[in-house]
Each structure stands twice: as structure tokens, then as C-alpha cells.
Simulated assay, not measured.
Amino acid sequence: MANWAKLGARLRAWRDDSRRTEANRARAAGDIAGFQGAVLLHGSLLLFKVAWLGGQPGLALRCSAYVLLCLAVVLLVRRHPELHARYRELIGTVCGATLAWMMLQLTVHRGLDLFKLHRGSSLALLGALLLSSPAAWLFMNIMFGQSPTAFLRFSLPLLALQPLWQSKRVCQCLLEEAGVQAPLRTLYDALDAVHCIALPAPLIYSPATAPPPNDLAACLAIDWWAVAFVAVVLPLTLLAHMEKGRARQQAVGWPQQQQQQQQHHHYHHHQEQQPGSTRELLLCIYLYSGLVWLLTVQLGPLVWRLLPPLA
């Protein structure tokens, strides 16, 4: 009971944090624009690509739940801004989970068929997998929302569970495409070679980094790396770096107006003024990517057995 009481006290303190809610109020206009853009983009995609051209109106109707959710958030921000400011992070998490569910539905039911665009290219195949898994969509959603990293450390692993659990079905769709085996193997070998540079010598030549036994194992390794790194580790690293930069600005006593202008600058423009910091950030990203790849290749075969069997 004492642990539950402490948890409840922490949640109440988080909900009533004035600094957090004030920052959320400042992002209200951007949230409205972002969710309106999501309604336009995904609504058009479902209407024209899935329902009309794809001939799957039922799938489009089912996936329109995300579009309706985005519309509801826009109305919430406009009519109840204080409620949105208090629970913005939780709302963003629900929207991210719904977005991931929608993209997975479109992938496994062939609503988009992005894998057909590979044309024998391993890079094109990686792009299609990032959009279908749906690591790239989650990354964009997280970077746009810019929730505090203290919250994202708990929410992002939960968001990643859904695409990781459905990875076998995603890979089944990928492997059914003609001519995908060669670029898939090339992509796996390229990722393995690039990340081996970041790994200690005993790990580089371990059996864990040997070629996968089949195409399904190669696809699962790439998909899990994409979800774990692109949708979890990479946004956490970037946002933590941005938070540290803002904290340094406030520590040296910059005027409030100048701080707000700096926060709206493009991230890379700020980094151009700190080449040493940029190099450290890129090195951390590379090392984290290598670590995620190593864990995926080593632990993946043990975990994949627990995933739902292919139909």
C-alpha cells in the first residue's frame, strides 16, 4: 500500500507541475497545426489510396479511428486548453499508439503495399520497412511532440511493444514480395558490417553476428533494430541533448525572449555553433545503434519464438 501511495503522490505532483503545464500551453498552437496536418495526410491516404484505389473501404473505415482521434485532440486543445496542458504527454502517447496500430493494420492487410517499391534496392527496402513497421512514423510523432525525456523513458518502450509483437506479420508481408530476398540479405549484411565497427573485438567475431539462418530471421533482426533504435533510442537521445542545451542557456541567464527564439530555431542550426557537441552526439547515436543491433542479433532468436506464429 505504501508503494501505491508513493506512486499516487508522484502522479499528482506530475499532473500539477506548473512548469510542465506552462510549457504545454506554449505548444498548444503547434499541436493544433500538427494534428490538423495528420488529419489531412492520413485522411487523404485512407480515402484515396486505401478505400478508392485499393478497394478496401472496410480497412479504411477501421483505420479512420486515428483520424477521428486527431480531430478530437484538436477540439480538446481549442475548447479545454487547461485539460490538454495537464495531460498532453498522455494524450500524445495514446495518439502514438493509435498511429502505430493504424500503420500496422495497413501493412498486414496490404492497404499500402510499400514493400513493392523496393525495386531491388536495399535502401528503398529499409525505407519501406521503417514506414511499415512503423518506426519512422513514431519517430516523427515523438520529435514533433517533444515531451520531457523523463516521461518518454517510460512511454516509448510501451509504444514499441505493439510493433515488436507484430514484427512476424510485417516480415511475412515483406517476404511475399517478389525479388525481395537479395536486397534483404544485402541490407542485413550492410547493417551488420557498419555496426561491427562500434562493437568490441570479442563481440564482432562471436557466433551471434554470424549470418542469419533464413530470410525471416534477417527481416526480424532489421525490423526489431528499426523499432528499438529509430522509435525509442534515437528520439530519446536527440531530445535529451536538446534539453541539456536549453538548460545550459537558462543557466547562463539568457533573457527569456532570447530563450524562446532559440527554442524555435532548427535543431541543426543550433548544433552548427557547437561542432564538438555535434561530434559527441553523433558518436553516441552510432554507439547506441550498434548496441541495439548487437542485442537484437543476440537476443532476437530467443524472443522471436514467443511471437505469434505466422498464419
Rank of each mutant, 00 (worst) to 15 (best):
M1G: 11
A2D: 14
W4R: 12
W4D: 15
L11Y: 08
R12K: 11
A13F: 01
W14C: 05
W14Y: 15
W14I: 03
S18F: 03
T21E: 04
A23G: 14
R27M: 14
A29V: 06
G30D: 13
A38F: 03
L40F: 06
L41K: 09
L47C: 03
L47Q: 15
F48S: 12
V50Y: 02
W52G: 01
L53A: 15
G54P: 04
G55F: 05
G58D: 12
A60G: 10
L61S: 14
L61T: 13
A65I: 05
L69H: 12
V77K: 00
R78C: 05
H80C: 07
H80W: 15
E82N: 09
H84P: 00
Y87Q: 06
R88F: 02
E89F: 05
L90W: 14
G92Y: 01
G92C: 06
T93S: 12
A97M: 13
R110P: 06
G111A: 10
D113N: 14
R119P: 00
G120L: 05
S121M: 02
L126S: 13
L126R: 14
L130F: 12
S132G: 07
S133Y: 00
A135K: 04
A135H: 03
F139I: 00
M140A: 15
I142P: 02
Q146H: 12
S147V: 01
T149K: 00
A150I: 06
F151I: 07
S155P: 04
L156N: 11
L158G: 01
A160Q: 03
S167T: 04
K168L: 09
V170K: 11
C171L: 00
C171I: 08
E176Y: 07
E176I: 04
E177F: 02
A178D: 15
G179Y: 07
V180M: 05
R185P: 02
D189N: 10
H195D: 08
H195P: 03
A198P: 00
L199N: 03
A201V: 15
P202G: 07
I204F: 00
S206Q: 02
P207C: 13
A208C: 09
A210F: 04
A210C: 07
P213A: 13
A218W: 06
C219I: 01
A221M: 07
A221Y: 03
I222F: 07
I222Y: 08
I222M: 10
D223N: 13
A226F: 01
A228P: 00
L239Q: 00
A240K: 10
H241K: 05
M242F: 08
E243V: 07
G245P: 02
G245T: 11
R246D: 09
R248I: 03
R248E: 15
P255N: 10
P255W: 00
Q257D: 14
Q258I: 07
Q259D: 08
Q261L: 14
H265N: 11
H266E: 12
H266P: 01
Y267S: 05
H270P: 00
H270E: 11
E272R: 15
G276M: 08
G276F: 09
T278H: 10
E280H: 08
E280V: 06
L281G: 09
C284R: 15
Y286N: 11
Y286E: 07
L287E: 09
L287K: 12
L287Q: 13
Y288H: 14
S289V: 08
G290S: 10
G290F: 08
L291P: 02
L291Q: 05
V292C: 06
V292T: 13
W293R: 04
L295C: 15
L295I: 13
P301E: 00
L302Q: 12
L302D: 09
W304G: 02
R305W: 07
L307W: 06
